[in-house]
Amino acid sequence: MIILENIDKSFKGVKVLDNLNISFEDKKITVVIGRSGEGKSVMLKHIVGLIKPDSGRVLFNDIDLNTINKKELNELRKKFGMVFQDGALFDSINIFENIAFPLRQHLKLSEGDIIKKVMSGLNDVGLSGIESKMPSELSGGMRKRVAVARAMILEPEIVLFDEPTTGLDPIMSDVINNLIISTQKHLKYTGIIISHSIEGAYKTADIIAMLYKGAIIETGNAEKFKKSDNPVVKQFVTGSMVGPIVI
């Protein structure tokens, strides 16, 4: 289980996370929603130790990420996969090598086994036949699907998705959402998605949490969110410009 406990984080005097508390249940998909600039990505980066909190604790199975050394953190990170907002594919190597990268770094597999795994990963995301292309030759949606394949290749326990559908057309967004659901069913990972797409959240989430002004203001399933009395949640869910959220 991952728990973020009393997390505070400021950048250049601006408080981004303000006493944030949230826990992520094992083998479930939690979607954290919120407006752009609310600190969702900052929260996600705390979970993998890319950003350290000013105060508070990030606990992974009761291990405090701030108290372990770099080697232990790297060992822990092998349990994680992460899909970055723009894919973060290595642009100097082709798609095959991008997906094979974690395998080559952490497993001693034969070239035949690597080829088999990469091809199977590409097939799972519906992109067979693009292995020799460079990342710059792919569309945004294809890059995200390759990023999903790369994140899943080591069959991680936890997968983090940083706005997986942002910038995609509705059909491609649906493809990505379905991909997340199907891979989670298959691999049984703990999924943590940050998004500002409420429709996507309803579709993929077991649990939805809303981040507002650096703290979690509501947690529950899709039904609870649809019926929420919280005016902030209500305004966000309905997408109205009138309400307590000041633009």
Binding site: K45, R77, F80, Q105
Partner: peptide, 8 residues
Amino acid sequence: DALEVMSV
């Protein structure tokens, strides 16, 4: 960041 998350 991707490299770091991949423990590299």
